[in-house]
Amino acid sequence: MIEVKNLVKSFGESPVLKGIDANFERGKTSLIIGQSGSGKTVFLKSLLGLHTPDSGTISFDGSDSSSLDEDEKRQLRQDIGMVFQGSALFDSLTVEENIMFPLKMFTQQTKSEMLDRVNAVIKRVKLFDANTKYPAELSGGMQKRVAIARAIVMNPKYLFCDEPNSGLDPKTAIVIDNLIQEITDEYQITTVINTHDMNSVMEIGEKIIFLRNGIKAWEGSSKDIFKTDNESVVDFVYSSNLFKKVRQAYLGETNL
């Protein structure tokens, strides 16, 4: 479980996060949504330790990350898997080497043990005939699968995803969403996803946090989001006519 208390972060004179409280439970897929500039990425990077908060605490299973020294932080990060928006695969390494990289860095496994583990996660993310390919030779969807495989190869306790569906076609986006949710259930990971994708919100949002101008403006589940009367959430989530109609139909106000 990740507990965030009164998280504040500014860049120069510009406050970006203005005191955010949030809990992310184990085995659940939590989504952070909000307009561009609302502070989602800064929030996620603060959770990851890539930004140092001005004040507030972030606790991973009771351990306050701000009280850890550099070595302890690096130790904690080995329990974290991250899927970046652009996948962030290492260009100079093959798919197999990319996924094996954390194992090589942090375990004492033999080459064959590492290969077994790599092949297991490759199978898990349903990535076939790609072991010896380089990232530039893969489609966006395949790169995301490799990124997910690399993120889970160390059996992390926490999985963070920054816009995992960006640049993907709707069908592939659903496949990636489902894959993340299945992995979260299967390995009982605490998963936090930063997204703009409203399909993800409806499909896998067990918990949704809506950020607006650096504050938490709303929190609920994908079911609650249909019924909420929070104007800023409704304005953001149902900005398209299709979603407006879906909501009206859900609430029984009209037929689709």
């Binding site: 330790g49 990060r77 963070f160």
Partner: peptide
């Protein structure tokens, strides 16, 4: 590597 977040990926891994 910096602009494609590969360096962030290394840091997040604890490297």
């Amino acid at each position: 590597m910096r602009v494609t977040e590969q360096i962030d990926a290394l840091e997040v891994m604890g490297i």
